[in-house]
């Protein structure tokens, strides 16, 4: 007992000696506690008929009524369809392109041009979706946009790109590629720098073609990175390709049938309509699906490739 007391006393003294270090951690600790752990606790509102004036303590619990409500809402299924389509296109088109781009950069000889291409293609990553949306609406304007002027000179009828919903998915995917192609290639390029150059030299001596070098050395070298990023992309399946910001910036009421992904649907119902519990239930379901997809894709890809995230 006496020994324990003394140990506790020494521990307290050590803590006191480190008071400045704890002071350094304190603001970060408070911010994380309030703004990260606070909403995790707030998730219980998904099981409530949440009233913002009465708060979590005062609102009535209604079991899984919120979940039943959105699962029987046809508008929700349209949002699921849009999310699934955009995420699938994202995985099939937007995901592989940076790998191809990184390989081309890696194989490309002229060093200065290579640097220039990298500098230019990284730039759009730092431009907000609001600006990307402004550029696209101008470029694709039905009457005066550059794209329609080009189509006109080619003898094609003008297209209302942002009026007809059928074009939205295509526009979204092209915009995502334009914005992130260069930047997404960085992680692959940094993985390529770690590949042993002797492998390439040996392949050259053996007379392996460029394609064979890429296939047998470069791709296996960056496979762990590909798998890691693919798992994370698959886990985010139900947030759509990029989540709220790009979809909201690019949408307008005329294309809502194709643009409104789950995040947008939940935003309008929750924030705009004040159906807090309902929208929180959707958010919680998205998180659960994300965890599920994370584990499933991790396991699947581990079996397939031998690499995994954890």
């Amino acid at each position: 007992m006496d020994n324990a007391n003394r140990r506790a006393g020494r521990w307290m003294r050590q803590v006191w000696e480190q008071k400045i270090l704890y002071l350094f951690v304190l603001p970060a600790l408070m911010a994380t506690l309030v703004f990260s752990y606070g909403p995790m606790y707030g998730v219980i509102m998904a099981f409530q008929d949440y009233d913002i004036l009465r708060g979590l303590g005062g609102s009535d619990f209604n079991g899984v009524a919120n979940f039943n409500a959105f699962l029987s809402d046809p508008d929700f299924y349209r949002a699921v369809r849009n999310t699934a389509v955009l995420s699938t296109l994202n995985i099939l088109v937007c995901f592989p392109l940076p790998i191809v781009f990184a390989i081309l950069i890696n194989e490309f000889g002229p060093a200065r041009l290579k640097k220039l291409v990298q500098s230019i293609t990284y730039l759009p990553h730092f431009i907000s979706w609001v600006i990307v949306s402004g550029l696209l609406y101008r470029l694709l304007d039905q009457d005066t946009g550059a794209v329609n002027l080009l189509l006109h000179t080619l003898g094609v009828d003008k297209i209302g790109f942002f009026r007809d919903p059928q074009y939205f998915w295509g526009i979204f995917i092209v915009a995502s590629i334009w914005k992130e192609l260069g930047w997404s290639s960085i992680l692959y390029l940094s993985a390529m720098t770690a590949i042993n150059p002797e492998l390439y030299e040996a392949a050259l001596v053996d007379g392996a073609s460029r394609f064979k070098r890429i296939w047998h050395i470069t791709l296996p070298g960056i496979l762990p990175t590909i798998v890691m990023l693919l798992i994370l992309t698959i886990a985010a399946f139900f947030s759509g390709a990029g989540g709220f910001e790009p979809a909201y910036a690019l949408r307008n009421p005329m294309v809502a049938t194709h643009s409104d992904i789950i995040d947008i649907f939940a935003y309008f119902r929750g924030v705009r309509n004040g159906e807090y519990g309902y929208a929180a239930a959707i958010g919680l379901s998205q998180s659960i699906m994300a965890i599920l997809f994370l584990f499933v894709s991790n396991k699947g890809l581990k079996k397939l490739t031998g690499y995994s995230l954890f």
Binding site: S36, G38, G42, M45, Y50, I52, G270, Y276, G283
Partner: peptide, 12 residues
């Protein structure tokens, strides 16, 4: 790795 989601954050 975990977050509470948009609505709980909005209410917070």
């Amino acid at each position: 790795y975990l977050s509470g989601g948009l609505l709980p954050y909005y209410v917070l």
